[in-house]
Design a protein around this nucleic acid. Structure first.
Lengths: 209, 209
DNA sequence: GGATTTTCTGACCATATGGTCAAAATTATG
DNA sequence: CATAATTTTGACCATATGGTCAGAAAATCC
């Protein structure tokens, strides 16, 4: 039997079908939320039968859990790239750009995450107050260092990071609203957003406190 | 029979029970999303029996619809207050403050709205591209006027408004995450957010283009 | 206080949904 | 190619859930 979870010692079929299921599940969970998603929908989306899906995963919860687990790494990655290498303002603007690109290129992942947090993050509370908090603390210290060195304007590093998360993910999570409001201007929404956000964070970080 | 919807010609009991149900439903829908919410949960939360709830509303959808309808007015209100009265920067900062206060004082409403948008706004697409778009267009013109008059720095008014929505609602919709990351600093999150956001939008709007 | 209207409830129904299982079909393996 | 292991499926099951309904309980009206 399969009942995958580990990524080692799997047959080709196991690997392929597992990915196939996760791809379909991402689509379905992102569109309908956890409760709104059904195994039947995942089955249809993936082209597999329901029992076949349950042959590879120990239930709906397990599929969702696997998706969230993988997602979190992807999610933390852009923030990890925030380092002391170049100019602080450019570093942060780069981070904003990467996050916005993720919202544009991986909206389903963003929505999956948003859904989970909105419901109180029942499945990933530990990851939030563990890895996510640690990484954020680390980057907050980095930003505080820049402030103390007078390289950027004094801002609350945590709320700066929250602002970046909020403003970038907004374009994935609330895309319907963005498109409805922009109307025929919607096509260029990501380009315009990039320009606006870069200007905003540049102004904030370069302002004279 | 009752089957309320109109707010006219109702008995005292009808008005009371209707409110009771909506209050409970707001709690349940905000916490679990539309699909995740059950009439039984609303029944328990409100202290009424399931059939009794269905005596006042034509089904789950109708309860949700009524909530969303009322919510939209509340939602648009702060933006309507954005007028040409005082100093533009102060006007916008006031708007930010009001929105943040709403996130703090009415997080359930914010989550209900966020849930709906995340799912593609199936029940309120018309309101988004209708009233919401109109109001946003109007305020965007107002902001553009300020820019042309040289009263604030040149920014894309639509994306400025999106930023304000995103950064303020974030503290309601993603509260679990915010609290997890802030840890013991979480208690003062709204005060800190207010200071940070005011500083951010002030810097943006006062920046020399 | 009795009739009438409104409100409420227990019992019930139909469907959706997560999940199981034995057996069939397929794919390695020797 | 025969055997063993893996993969797939149709048929089911148990439960949850939205919703109905006839009649009971309250409230209102005359």
């Amino acid at each position: 039997m399969a009942r995958a979870a580990a990524t080692k010692g799997q047959t080709r079929i196991q690997r392929e079908k597992t990915e196939q299921i996760l791809e379909a599940a991402l689509e379905v969970f992102a569109r309908n939320g956890y409760r709104g998603a059904t195994i039947d929908q995942i089955a249809e989306q993936s082209g597999l039968s329901k029992p076949n899906i349950l042959y590879y995963f120990d239930g709906k919860r397990a599929i969702h859990g696997e998706l969230l687990g993988r997602l979190l790494d992807t999610w933390l990655e852009p923030l990890e790239h925030l380092t002391d290498d170049g100019d602080p303002v450019e570093e942060i603007c780069d981070y904003v750009r990467r996050k916005l690109e993720m919202a544009r290129d991986y909206p389903r992942e963003s929505r999956l995450f948003a859904n989970e947090i909105l419901q109180g993050a029942p499945h990933i509370v530990d990851e939030l107050s563990g890895p996510l908090k640690q990484l954020t603390d680390e980057k907050a210290r980095l930003i505080n260092g820049w402030i103390k060195a007078g390289k950027i304007a004094p801002v609350d590093p945590y709320h700066l990071i929250f602002s970046i998360w909020a403003t970038t993910q907004h374009y994935a999570d609330f895309d319907v609203q963005v498109q409805a409001v922009l109307g025929d201007k919607a096509a260029s929404r990501f380009g315009a957003a990039q320009a606006h956000l870069e200007g905003m964070y540049r102004a904030l970080l370069s302002s004279k406190g």
